[in-house]
Nucleic acid binder design. Structure first.
Lengths: 75, 75
DNA sequence: ATGTAGACTCGCGTCGACG
DNA sequence: GCGTCGACGCGAGTCTACA
């Protein structure tokens, strides 16, 4: 699986686990609602600061999330 | 420490560990030489695909590198 | 082998609006 | 609550060139 799609899947999974809507997540990590949607649908890729601020809200360490992305990506 | 600076430090450290010059690294991961320099000096931040392709060349898992960035960043 | 600078393309990230 | 669209500013990433 390509990397942005892997990230989108992992993001969606952890957002649901946190019990947040795209809007709530966007609000808390100071991003746009539509942009979270774009990330989950793999139409945008985050920079690493964006990654860190999302992970902070999701209460997960960035490297944990990246590890899951690696698995889906296949390395 | 801010996040792009943390990344720059970690990148430089692992590039040296791999025994590569900025030019050699850039060539192998299909990026520009000047851009690697910009990353190390924290004047640019990588997207996550850029992160993955750099890590592949450095023979390190992205989540390992991210873990070190977290430490420097302080979380 | 690296730092810097200018100019360029394209994608990130925002915003308003509609279904 | 989400997908999508158009438009926008700005930053990612490239290229050339000079020190």
């Amino acid at each position: 699986m390509e990397i942005s799609k892997a990230f989108g899947n992992v993001l969606k999974k952890h957002r649901k686990l946190a019990g947040l809507s795209q809007e709530q997540l966007a609000l808390q990590c100071d991003l746009d609602r539509t942009y979270i949607g774009l990330l989950e649908r793999a139409q945008r890729q985050p920079s690493i600061t964006t990654l860190f601020s999302i992970c902070e809200v999701l209460k997960i360490k960035p490297h944990e999330l990246i590890k899951e992305v690696e698995k889906l990506y296949g390395i």
